[in-house]
């Protein structure tokens, strides 16, 4: 599903952030990427969503080489990857329904399809009853679930979540992780970038550890060990 070969990323001011990363992720896997702050995890995420280009190496998602993607192709990549960040990124003046529908509107989907798909994904994340609420009326966990629903509308093959539980309490964090597990059961590849030791250890899934820009461990049923 995801092939990362010899990836390096250098910034002029900061120097080498990622150094010779080799990684292969199969379809349907649930992978946690862990590491200290500044290890390069978020940089890796930015490379995967073509927010940045690698200084060297190759990244392929579903066989599509995205290492040197043209700006006009980036939107199409983003529609195939669900992206979830720590800071929710919801539109405050749109309802839950409208926030999720937004992802379909930008892709030019018809109203009929939007009206069919949005309730389905809201059902997956358990927010059917909150469709007419505004983000400010929701808890942190509910807001993150809206973001997950939005990321699901295009039926992505991959969901990349960068610290999705960072702003949540334990209970909400657990709910969000359960949703990810449910989505994974449907066959979607999940890449979870996290600091949360408890989450990683409870998942007992593949754990990749990055330290100072280098991949230092890759365990099938790993634990958060730093």
């Amino acid at each position: 599903m995801i092939d990362i070969t010899g990836i390096k990323k250098t910034y002029p001011a900061s120097g080498l952030i990622l150094d010779d990363i080799h990684l292969h992720i199969d379809p349907g896997e649930f992978v946690s990427i862990v590491g200290q702050s500044g290890a390069g995890k978020t940089t890796l995420v930015r490379l995967l969503i073509a927010e940045e280009k690698p200084s060297a190496g190759r990244i392929a998602i579903g066989g599509w080489d995205i290492s040197n993607l043209a700006p006009s192709e980036v939107p199409y990549l983003r529609r195939q990857i669900g992206v979830i960040f720590q800071d929710f990124k919801l539109l405050p003046k749109k309802t839950v329904f409208e926030n999720v529908a937004f992802a379909l509107e930008v892709a030019g989907e018809r109203r009929l399809r939007i009206r069919a798909v949005v309730p389905q994904v809201l059902g997956i994340v358990g927010l059917q009853d909150k469709r007419n609420h505004y983000p400010a009326e929701l808890s942190g966990g509910e807001q993150q679930r809206v973001v997950i629903a939005r990321s699901l509308v295009h039926r992505p093959k991959v969901i990349i979540a960068d610290e999705p539980t960072g702003n949540l309490d334990t209970i909400n964090a657990a709910e969000v992780i359960e949703i990810f597990k449910k989505i994974n059961e449907f066959g979607t590849t999940i890449l979870l970038v996290t600091h949360n030791r408890d989450v990683v250890n409870q998942l007992r899934r593949r754990v990749i550890t990055i330290e100072r820009g280098r991949l230092i461990s890759d365990e099938k049923h790993g634990k958060y060990v730093l």
Binding site: S72, P75, L77, K89, L90, V106, A107
Partner: peptide, 16 residues
Amino acid sequence: RAEISIKRLVGAGSWF
């Protein structure tokens, strides 16, 4: 800016 960044995140094209 926030709205624009969300548009880009969910795959909005340049014209949108």
